[in-house]
Structure formats: structure tokens, C-alpha cells
Computed example of a mutant assay.
Amino acid sequence: MKSIALSAFFVLAAASSGVAGDADAGRAVFRKCAACHATDPVNRVGPSLAGIVGRPVASFPEYGYSSAMIAFGKDRVWDEGLLAEYLAAPRAMVPGTAMAFAGLKRPQDIADIIAFLKGVSAAQ
């Protein structure tokens, strides 16, 4: 639990200090996610990430979200800060989530993938 808190601290510190994300580098980082998630409006094992930045949590159509994610998502929107925190430790942030991915440990990877996801529109 201590390492999760430390990871979250570094992610939030990086985000607040203006670490710029690189969308091209984020495309490469996204390969870690692509087995379960798509950037076009199609669900796979996980929900589509098309248009995720600014979208209400657990809201992509026709995806069966876990009850844990539905409860977590109540009145929340995926903004850059929430995504950064979640991507650092998904299972710690949402206990009971179906997402098996342990998280991204490097703040730069998180900033990069968010920059990439910001460019992925819901209409693609």
C-alpha cells in the first residue's frame, strides 16, 4: 500500500508540475493497453477509450462495467488528474475492478498516454 501511495504522489506531483505528455510516445505506451482496449468506438475485453478524456466514468455504451467501477464512477468524469491517479494503480483506486492491469509506474508514461488519449475522439 505504501508503494501505491508513493506512486500516486509522484504521478500527481508530475501532473501538477507541468510534466508535458507526448502523444506520439503515448501511442507506444498504449500498446500495453491495446490487448483489452480500443481507441475506436468498439468495446473489447475492456471498454473503448475513444473520447475518454471528459467522459463520465463507466459510461461507454454497451459495456458491462463491474459494480465496483459503476460505484466509483458515480458523479465522476475522466479528467487528466483522475486518469493519472487511476493509471498509476487501477486496482488500488477501484477495489473490485475487473481491470487486471497493475498500472503504469513512470509518471512520464502516464503523461504521455493521457496526451495520446486526449487526441482520440469519440467519433473515430
Results as ranks from 00 to 15, higher is better:
Leu6Arg: 14
Ala84Asp: 06
Val120Lys: 14
Ser17Thr: 06
Ser7Lys: 15
Glu62Arg: 15
Ile4Trp: 14
Ala34Ile: 05
Gly54Thr: 04
Leu6Trp: 13
Ala122Val: 02
Asp40Met: 11
Ala115Arg: 00
Met93Gly: 08
Phe60Val: 11
Leu87Ile: 07
Lys32Ala: 15
Ala35Arg: 07
Ser7His: 11
Asp75Gly: 13
Ala92Gln: 06
Ala102Leu: 12
Thr97Leu: 13
Ala58Cys: 05
Ala58Gly: 03
Phe60Ile: 08
Ala8Gln: 14
Pro41Ala: 12
Ser3His: 14
Ser67Leu: 14
Pro90Trp: 05
Cys33His: 00
Val42Asp: 11
Arg31Glu: 01
Ile52Cys: 08
Val53Ile: 13
Pro90Asn: 06
Asn43Gly: 04
Lys32Glu: 12
Val29Thr: 04
Cys36Gln: 00
Leu82Asn: 03
Glu62Tyr: 10
Arg76Asp: 02
Val19Pro: 05
Lys74Pro: 09
Gly51Arg: 01
Phe10Ala: 14
Ala100Cys: 07
Ala115Pro: 02
Ala5Thr: 10
Ala20Glu: 02
Gly51Phe: 01
Arg27Phe: 13
Ile70His: 09
Ile114Arg: 01
Lys118Phe: 02
Val11Cys: 09
Ser7Glu: 04
Ile114Ser: 04
Pro61Trp: 02
Val42Met: 11
Met1Cys: 11
Asp79Lys: 14
Met99Asn: 08
Ala84His: 01
Val11Leu: 11
Ala92Asn: 07
Gly54Arg: 10
Val45Asp: 10
Gly46Pro: 02
Ala100Ser: 12
Ile4Val: 15
Ala68Arg: 08
Gly21Glu: 00
Arg31Phe: 05
Lys118Ala: 06
Gln108Tyr: 09
Trp78Gly: 03
Ala38Phe: 11
Gly54His: 09
Pro107Leu: 09
Met1Lys: 10
Ala35Val: 08
Pro61Gln: 04
Pro47Met: 09
Arg55Gly: 06
Gly73Asp: 01
Val42Pro: 06
Pro107Glu: 00
Val45Arg: 06
Asn43His: 06
Glu62Met: 11
Gly54Pro: 05
Asp79Ser: 14
Ala14Thr: 06
Asp79Trp: 13
Ala100Lys: 08
Ile110Val: 15
Ser67Tyr: 07
Ser121Thr: 07
Ala102Ile: 05
Gln124Glu: 11
Leu104Glu: 00
Ala88Leu: 06
Leu12Thr: 10
Ser48Tyr: 00
Ala71Trp: 09
Ala89Gly: 12
Lys105Cys: 09
Ala123Asp: 15
Ala123Tyr: 12
Asp24Gln: 08
Leu83Ile: 01
Ala34Gln: 06
Cys33Ile: 02
Glu62Phe: 13
Glu85Thr: 15
Ala8Val: 15
Ala35Gly: 12
Ala23Asp: 04
Pro61Glu: 02
Ala123Thr: 12
Asp112Pro: 06
Leu49Asn: 05
Ala8Cys: 12
Val120Met: 15
Asp112Lys: 02
Phe72Ala: 03
Phe116Ile: 02
Ser48Phe: 01
Ser3Ala: 14
Glu62Gln: 15
Gly18Ile: 00
Glu80Ser: 08
Pro95Leu: 14
Ala92Pro: 05
Val120Pro: 03
Ala14Met: 08
Ala50Asn: 03
Ser66Glu: 03
Ala13Val: 09
Gly51Asp: 04
Ile70Phe: 07
Ala111Gln: 01
Gly96Val: 02
Ala28Ser: 10
Ile113Lys: 00
Asp22Pro: 03
Val94Trp: 13
Ser3Cys: 09
Ser121Asp: 10
Ser48Val: 05
Ala122Gly: 09
Thr39Gly: 08
Glu85Phe: 14
